[in-house]
Design a protein around this nucleic acid. Structure first.
Lengths: 214, 214
DNA sequence: CGGATATTTGACCGATTGGTAAACATTACA
DNA sequence: TGTAATGTTTACCAATCGGTCAAATATCCG
């Protein structure tokens, strides 16, 4: 009889590695659109191209699938903020942070929506991560920003709300993509909208934070 | 036998008015958290404090419930943008638009989340409204902003992305409320965070748009 | 009051849900 | 090559899903 994966201690097989990848890819498709409750294992199985019991051989529950997905996404999602360098100069750091976040919104919209869905539902599966690792990282970067303000490199402002505003403006292009496209109309819905957004947002934040004005 | 509500032509009774209100209130609670697919009629019935067949007496399907809710929310949600006055001066208009949107995020977070859920799912129920009335309204206001830029009242910028950035930054405090609270920590999670956000955002946009710099 | 109309409910339906059991097929490896 | 471990599938389960129906009850109005 096959031993359920989660109870196994040996290292993972090649097939395990591949199939788990296929499943998580399919799960991302489904969860990112319908959220946890609104998604069904059958849906994910169909997208993954395998039978439902086969999915459940690799992930014992729907919850386990979601958990694995969230864990993976959460890490890469914070990469841009981690790259935010205290020793760089404010203008280039802010600019490249905005660019990086916009690139993620463009290249990984499903990941952004998965996260947004989780937030809308009150973060029932990740609240601990928010209060722990996320808060710590933001606290650290907020301190950097505060120090820049202290020496006059940027205008005085609340660093937490600054971070929130960069998050929200950039993720908007992934999470509200339909709305953005609808409002811009067909002619401006090409990939060029990300370049337009980058230009606009960089100027907004650089000028809005009083950078380069000295 | 009772005639299904939707087929009736007579005016609504007092009870109808009251019960439909109770139902939509409960539906808002549930739909705004779990989205359309993730919500169940039983859940809504329980929150509303009435039996499932009774709900279905007033709204014949789950879809009808959602539809009625979306229609109501969509109208009031655009109120602040409609109030955006072409004859006002840029600074006060931008400031009060931000304030109004933040107040809505504070006072009607469920409505914001309902809308966000719909967007994340690709707006299957409201895409027409986005391409029609919403786009028209935004086009109109974008023209106002463009004219301000033309006469030098504000810096040149893409008016559409400007509107997106005000939407996203303000709605963030409703849609990502859990995250905002988690990051700010208990001590800064009181209602004061909306005042802090307003101060920060007003400065960001006023300075970022080059208003008052002349 | 009484009858017409409006409202509410319990019992129920077929479809779908997350998940299981066990037979069967395939792979890895000695 | 043989066989033990791994991987896959068919058939199935109880619970829940959206929704119906007819009977029971409450309300309105003359």
């Amino acid at each position: 009889m096959a031993i359920p994966r989660a109870a196994r201690t040996q290292r993972r097989t090649r097939i395990q590695e591949e199939k788990e990848e296929v499943i998580l890819e399919a799960a991302l498709d489904v969860f990112s659109v319908h959220g946890f409750r609104g998604s069904t294992i059958d849906q994910i199985a169909e997208v993954a191209g395998m039978s439902k019991p086969n999915l459940l051989y690799y992930f014992r529950t729907k919850e386990a699938m979601h958990r694995a997905l969230i864990d993976r996404v959460l890490f890469t999602w914070l990469e841009p903020l981690r790259a935010f360098d205290a020793n760089g100069n404010p203008e280039s750091e802010i600019r490249s942070y905005i660019r990086r976040k916009l690139e993620m919104a463009r290249d990984f919209p499903r990941e952004s929506r998965l996260f947004a869905n989780e937030m809308l539902q009150g973060a029932p599966h990740v609240e601990d991560e928010l209060r722990g690792p996320l808060k710590s990282l933001v606290d650290e970067k907020a301190e950097v920003i505060r120090s820049w303000a202290k020496v006059g490199k940027i205008a005085k402002c609340d660093p937490y709300h600054l971070i929130f505003s960069i998050w929200s403006t950039t993720q908007h292009y992934a999470d509200f993509d339909v709305q953005v496209r609808a409002v811009l109309g067909q002619e401006h819905s090409g990939e060029g909208r990300f370049e337009d957004a980058a230009r606009y947002l960089e100027k907004l934040f650089v000028d809005g934070l009083g950078i380069r004005r000295s």
